[in-house]
Lab assay of single mutants.
Amino acid sequence: EEKRQVKQVAKEKLLEQSPNSKVQVRRVQKQGNTIRVELELRTNGKKENYTVEVERQGNTWTVKRITRT
């Protein structure tokens, strides 16, 4: 359940930055209360990979860091 929520948060964050792209989740890793989500962003056939680190704060998820990989 929490992985599902985190995927959603990570996707939304990337789509905010580039709204007309397609996002696909590649991998989800958990480390303590930080969850790392690896995503693939496609814009006009151009692929970019991103890693989004999401942290739990109380009962909400906040995006800590977005890295292009």
Rank of each mutant, 00 (worst) to 15 (best):
Y50I: 06
N44V: 07
K47R: 12
G58N: 09
V52C: 03
T67I: 14
Q5I: 10
N33D: 12
W61K: 01
S21V: 07
V52K: 00
Y50H: 01
L14Y: 01
R36V: 14
E16P: 02
E53M: 09
K46I: 12
E48M: 07
Q17D: 08
E48Q: 10
K3M: 15
T34G: 07
V37L: 07
L14W: 03
E38G: 04
R27Y: 08
E55G: 04
S21L: 04
S21E: 02
N59V: 04
G45K: 07
K13H: 09
K30F: 15
Q5T: 12
A10L: 08
R4N: 09
E2K: 03
L14C: 06
I66N: 00
P19A: 04
K47L: 14
R42E: 14
R65P: 01
G58W: 03
L39W: 01
S21C: 06
K22N: 10
N49Q: 12
V63R: 00
E53A: 04
S18I: 12
A10E: 01
G45W: 06
T60H: 14
V6F: 02
E40H: 05
G58K: 06
N20V: 06
E12R: 12
Q8L: 06
K11G: 03
K13C: 09
K22E: 14
V52L: 08
E2I: 12
Y50R: 00
R4G: 06
T69L: 11
N49M: 13
V54W: 04
N44A: 10
E38P: 00
G32S: 04
L41A: 07
Q24D: 05
P19W: 02
L41Q: 03
G45L: 05
Q24K: 15
E38M: 14
N49I: 14
V9S: 03
E2A: 09
S21W: 04
N33K: 10
S18H: 15
K64R: 11
Q24F: 14
V9E: 02
G32P: 02
V28W: 09
S21F: 04
T69R: 11
R4P: 03
Q24W: 14
N59F: 05
N33A: 10
T34C: 07
R26W: 04
V6E: 02
K22D: 11
L39C: 08
Q17P: 01
K7I: 15
R68D: 03
E2M: 06
L41F: 04
E12W: 02
V52D: 00
Q29M: 13
R65E: 12
S18R: 10
R68P: 08
K47D: 03
E1V: 06
V54S: 00
T69I: 11
L39I: 11
V23R: 00
Q31A: 08
V25R: 01
Q17I: 15
R26Q: 07
L15S: 04
T62F: 14
N44R: 10
T62A: 12
E2H: 08
L41R: 03
I66V: 12
L14D: 01
L14G: 01
V6H: 03
E12T: 09
K13E: 04
Q57W: 08
N20C: 07
R56I: 07
K7W: 15
W61A: 06
N20A: 11
R42M: 13
E48K: 06
R42N: 14
Q29L: 13
T62E: 13
K47H: 13
L15A: 04
S18T: 07
Q31G: 05
Q8R: 12
K13T: 10
L14Q: 01
K3S: 13
G45F: 06
E1G: 08
L41D: 01
V25E: 01
T69C: 07
V37G: 00
L39P: 00
R26P: 01
R56K: 14
K64P: 01
N59I: 06
R4E: 14
E12F: 02
V52A: 05
V23Q: 01
K7Q: 13
E12C: 07
E40W: 09
L41Y: 02
R65C: 08
R68G: 04
R4T: 11
V23L: 05
N44Y: 07
I35K: 00
T62M: 12
V63H: 00
Q31M: 15
V9F: 09
E16T: 05
E55C: 05
L41E: 01
G58L: 04
T43L: 11
N59Q: 10
L39N: 00
T51R: 05
N44K: 10
L39A: 07
R42F: 15
Q24T: 14
V23P: 03
K30Q: 14
T43P: 01
K47W: 10
R65D: 09
V52P: 00
K47A: 10
L41G: 02
Q57T: 13
N20W: 01
V25H: 02
K13A: 14
P19D: 03
E38D: 11
T62K: 13
S21H: 03
V63S: 01
K7H: 07
R36C: 07
A10T: 04
V52R: 00
K3L: 15
V6N: 02
V6I: 14
K13F: 11
E40C: 06
R42P: 00
R42T: 15
R65I: 11
E53F: 11
E55L: 07
I66Q: 01
L39M: 09
Q8W: 01
Q57S: 12
V63E: 01
E1A: 11
V6A: 15
K3I: 15
V63C: 03
Q5S: 11
V28L: 10
V52T: 00
R68Q: 10
V23K: 01
K64Y: 06
Q8G: 05
E1T: 07
A10Q: 01
E16Y: 02
E53Q: 05
T43S: 11
R26D: 01
G58I: 02
T43A: 08
V25W: 02
K22R: 11
K7E: 15
T51Y: 10
T69W: 10
V9L: 14
A10S: 04
L14I: 09
Q29S: 15
P19K: 04
I35S: 05
K64M: 13
V37N: 00
W61N: 04
E38T: 10
E12A: 15
V54M: 12
Q5F: 11
K46R: 12
N49E: 09
R68M: 11
I35T: 10
N59K: 09
G58A: 04
E16W: 03
K11D: 01
V23I: 13
T51M: 13
R4M: 13
Q31C: 11
E38F: 15
E55F: 11
K7A: 15
E16V: 04
K13L: 06
S18Y: 15
V52G: 00
R26G: 06
K22V: 13
S18E: 10
E1C: 08
L15C: 05
S18N: 15
Y50D: 00
S18L: 14
P19F: 03
Q5P: 03
Q17F: 14
K30C: 09
R68H: 13
G32L: 04
V28P: 01
S21N: 03
V54G: 00
K30G: 12
E16G: 06
R56S: 05
I35Y: 15
N20T: 10
E1F: 03
Q17T: 12
Y50E: 00
G32M: 03
K13G: 07
K7L: 14
T69Q: 11
N20R: 09
Q24R: 14
T69K: 09
R68K: 12
V52E: 00
S21R: 02
V28G: 01
L15Y: 06
T34H: 08
T51Q: 06
K7G: 15
